[in-house]
């Protein structure tokens, strides 16, 4: 049998790997993660039925952002600032050049 594609978009794979890496490095237990993620899925599912595709990974991202904010590993304000830095870097980098953050 052939193995189906595991992720629809590269960021989903990055997000998954980041979460597993944090767990493996001992920064949170997998049970803590599934509790946070389960709560986020439940909250979203109450509003609209989730299809398990893009909305699943969107919920995963929000759950991880929340967990990292609460633990102080990546406070929300910091995450928003770095996200904006990346956006600026993409917009300022000529097409075809590697995109890097300043400093």
């Amino acid at each position: 049998m052939t193995t189906p594609a595991q992720f629809d978009e590269p960021w989903q794979a990055q997000l998954f790997a980041l979460t597993v890496a944090l767990n493996e490095a001992g920064h949170f237990g997998w049970t803590d993660w599934t509790a946070a993620f389960g709560a986020e899925l439940k909250a979203r599912g109450a509003v609209r039925e989730l299809d398990g595709g893009a909305d699943y990974w969107a919920a995963w991202l929000v759950a991880l952002e929340g967990l990292l904010d609460r633990s102080g590993m990546a406070a929300r304000g910091e995450a928003e600032r770095v996200r904006a830095d990346w956006e600026r870097a993409y917009l300022a980098t000529p097409h075809g050049q590697p995109v890097r953050l300043e400093g």
Partner: peptide, 16 residues
């Protein structure tokens, strides 16, 4: 003229 801007979730993951 600039690099193609990744999607919002992609930028958020990059930030983390």
């Amino acid at each position: 003229p600039h690099s193609l801007l990744p999607s919002d979730p992609a930028l958020r993951v990059k930030a983390l």
